[in-house]
């Protein structure tokens, strides 16, 4: 496996933020996965010595800023997820593809639940089940990335 460079991480995170900033509306907004968190999880699992909890926190702040939300709520959710991802990083390298998908789904769900709890403290109403759709879409797009990577790196290793 090729070593990871910092610029690679930076570029992919900027790209994810750009995807997040696209003018989503209506149905698309309901389905939109959390691109930033997905990319973060990928780097946290692959290169925790370069992309750590601090990176996750910074990206969370940027997302908060883009949303015009309370400062720090995405940051907190991302930090919690990043901790789990880093803490179990050694174990996740042993997972097969499906276990890994489930694990990522769990992480995405955790971030959404943290955000939901913060919103509920702020006095929001309980949203419908479709609130969790972005996690489902997120894990599907994760699988997409995994498949494409297999094609890319599988040949190199064979």
């Amino acid at each position: 496996m090729r070593p990871v460079s910092g610029s690679q991480i930076f570029a992919s995170l900027t790209g994810a933020l750009l995807l997040y900033l696209l003018p989503w509306a209506g149905f698309g907004l309901m389905l939109r996965p959390d691109f930033v968190l997905l990319v973060l999880i990928y780097w946290l699992m692959r290169a925790p010595h370069m992309c750590n909890i601090g990176t996750a926190w910074l990206m969370g702040l940027l997302v908060d800023l883009a949303n015009g939300d309370l400062f720090g709520q995405h940051a907190l959710a991302y930090v919690l997820v990043a901790f789990l991802a880093v803490h179990y990083q050694k174990r996740t390298t042993l997972f097969n593809q499906w276990q890994q998908g489930g694990y990522v789904f769990l992480l995405l769900l955790i971030s959404q639940i943290v955000l939901l709890m913060l919103e509920l403290f702020g006095g929001a109403d309980v949203p419908g089940w479709d609130y969790f759709l972005p996690s489902v879409v997120g894990v599907l797009s994760w699988q997409l990335v995994v498949y494409s990577k297999i094609k890319v790196t599988g040949e190199q290793e064979a």
């Binding site: 750590n52 909890i53 601090g54 996750a56 926190w57 969370g60 702040l61 309370l70 400062f71 720090g72 709520q73 940051a75 907190l76 930090v79 919690l80 990043a82 901790f83 880093v86 803490h87 913060l118 702020g122």
Partner: peptide, 21 residues
């Protein structure tokens, strides 16, 4: 350690939230 980082950044986010809200 990750745990120390978790505590540090969580506290930072919570403080930010309180200050902002």
């Amino acid at each position: 350690s990750p745990f120390a980082r978790l505590i540090f950044f969580s506290m930072l986010s919570l403080a930010l939230m309180v200050v902002d809200a």
